[in-house]
C-alpha cells in the first residue's frame, strides 16, 4: 500500500510537470506568467524550508539570496555575459555570502536569529541603494530588453523541479537526519557527534543556491528590478508564509502552501474589488488559529499525505524543545 502511494505520488508530480510544460501550447498564455510567478515563490518557499523547516531555524533573510542572485545576474548580463554564464556567477556569490554569514548568525537562536537575518535583508537593500555605480541605486537596474517569457518559464520549472528533488534527497540522507536532530535538540545532537556548526552552515549554503538561481531567472524575465522589488517585504515574507501555511519540514508543505496562497490571492484580487487584502489577512488568521501545523497536517489530509510515503516528516514538531525560544 505504502509503496503504491509513493508511486502514485511520483506519477502525479511527473504528470503535473508534463502538463505545465505543455501549458504554452494549450493557449494559456496568461497561465504561463501565472505559473512562472507561482514557481518562483514555490522555489523560494521550498529552499527556505531547508533551513526553516528541516533545520528549525527561521531564516527571515532568505530573500537576500534571491536579491543577490537577481542583482548579480543583472550586472553580469549588462556586462555582456549570457544567462548561462551569469547564473553560476550569481549562484557562487550567494553561496559564498551564505558561508560568510553562517558562522556569526548561527550563534543566535529563535526570535533573535529570525530578526538578525531579517536585518540582513534590509542591510543589503540599503547597500544596493547606496552603491549606485554598481547597482543603479534606487532607480533600479534594467537588463537587455527582450521577450523571455517562454524560456524563463521552462528554466524556472526546471529549477523548481530540481529543488524538489534536492529537498527530497536531503530529507532521505544522513545529512538530512542530522538536520532534523539539530532541530529537535541541538545540544543532544552535538553530544552525539553531529558537527552542528558545519551542518548548519551547509544547510544555509544549499538553501541559498535555488533562491539565487531563481533570482537570476526572475530578473531575466522581468528585464528590470529595483531594490524594493527583490528585497521588499512582499518577496521576503510571502514565501515563508507559504511554507508555514502549507506545513514546514516536509517537501509537500511549501508546494501546497504556494499553490493555495497563489490561488486564494488570484481569486480575491481579480474577483473582489475591495477588502481583498483584509480577506487574505482573515485567511491567514484562521489558518494560524486552527491549523498551526500547516495545511498538510490537518487531521483529514494527514493520512493522505502519509500514504504518499514521503517519510515520517508529517509527525515532526510534536515535541520540539522549549529552549529554542528564548
Amino acid at each position: 500500500m505504502s509503496r503504491g502511494g509513493k508511486k502514485l505520488f511520483y506519477s502525479v508530480v511527473l504528470l503535473l510537470w508534463a502538463f505545465l510544460a505543455a501549458l504554452p501550447f494549450l493557449g494559456f498564455s496568461y497561465g504561463v506568467v501565472w505559473v512562472f510567478l507561482l514557481a518562483v515563490y514555490f522555489t523560494l518557499a521550498l529552499s527556505y524550508d531547508i533551513v526553516g523547516g528541516y533545520l528549525g531555524y527561521m531564516n527571515l533573510g532568505h530573500a537576500s539570496f534571491f536579491g543577490l542572485g537577481a542583482y548579480t545576474t543583472a550586472i553580469l548580463l549588462n556586462q555582456g555575459f549570457n544567462l548561462f554564464s551569469a547564473l553560476p556567477g550569481a549562484m557562487l556569490l550567494a553561496a559564498a555570502f551564505a558561508a560568510v554569514i553562517s558562522y556569526p548568525l548561527f550563534r543566535l537562536r529563535g526570535a533573535y536569529f529570525a530578526l538578525a537575518t531579517f536585518g540582513l535583508v534590509s542591510l543589503i537593500e540599503v547597500l544596493t541603494n547606496n552603491l549606485r555605480d554598481l547597482t543603479g541605486g534606487s532607480g533600479g537596474i534594467s537588463t537587455p530588453p527582450g521577450d523571455h517569457t517562454l524560456p524563463s518559464y521552462y528554466l524556472v520549472l526546471a529549477v523548481a523541479g530540481g529543488t524538489m528533488v534536492l529537498s527530497q534527497i536531503i530529507a532521505r540522507s544522513k545529512f538530512g537526519l542530522a538536520l532534523f536532530s539539530i532541530r529537535e535538540d541541538e545540544e543532544v545532537a552535538k553530544a552525539f557527534g553531529v558537527p552542528t556548526t558545519l551542518y548548519k552552515g551547509l544547510a544555509l549554503i544549499i538553501s541559498s543556491v535555488p533562491a539565487s538561481v531563481v533570482g537570476g531567472i526572475y530578473v531575466w524575465h522581468m528585464t528590470y528590478i529595483s531594490p524594493e522589488s527583490v528585497f521588499g517585504l512582499e518577496i521576503a515574507l510571502s514565501p515563508i508564509i507559504m511554507a508555514m501555511l502549507g506545513g514546514t519540514g516536509i517537501m509537500i508543505g511549501p508546494l501546497v502552501g504556494a499553490v493555495f496562497i497563489t490561488l486564494v490571492q488570484e481569486f480575491l484580487w481579480t474577483k473582489v474589488p475591495y477588502f481583498h487584502l483584509a480577506m487574505y489577512g482573515t485567511v491567514l488568521v484562521l489558518l494560524g488559529r486552527f491549523m498551526p501545523g500547516g495545511l498538510v497536517r490537518i487531521r483529514w489530509i494527514r493520512p493522505f499525505i502519509q500514504r504518499l510515503d514521503l517519510g515520517e516528516a508529517v509527525d515532526y514538531f510534536r515535541n520540539v524543545d522549549a529552549e529554542r525560544m528564548p
Binding site: 498564455s29 496568461y30 506568467v33 529595483s226 512582499e234 484580487w269
Partner: peptide, 21 residues
C-alpha cells in the same frame, strides 16, 4: 482595473492578464 499591491511582479502579472485574458 486590478489591484497591483504596489509590487512589480504583480503589476507584470496583471498587465499580462489584461493583454491575454
Amino acid at each position: 482595473i486590478y489591484d497591483d499591491k504596489s509590487d512589480q511582479a504583480t503589476v507584470k502579472k496583471y498587465y499580462e492578464r489584461l493583454a491575454t485574458v
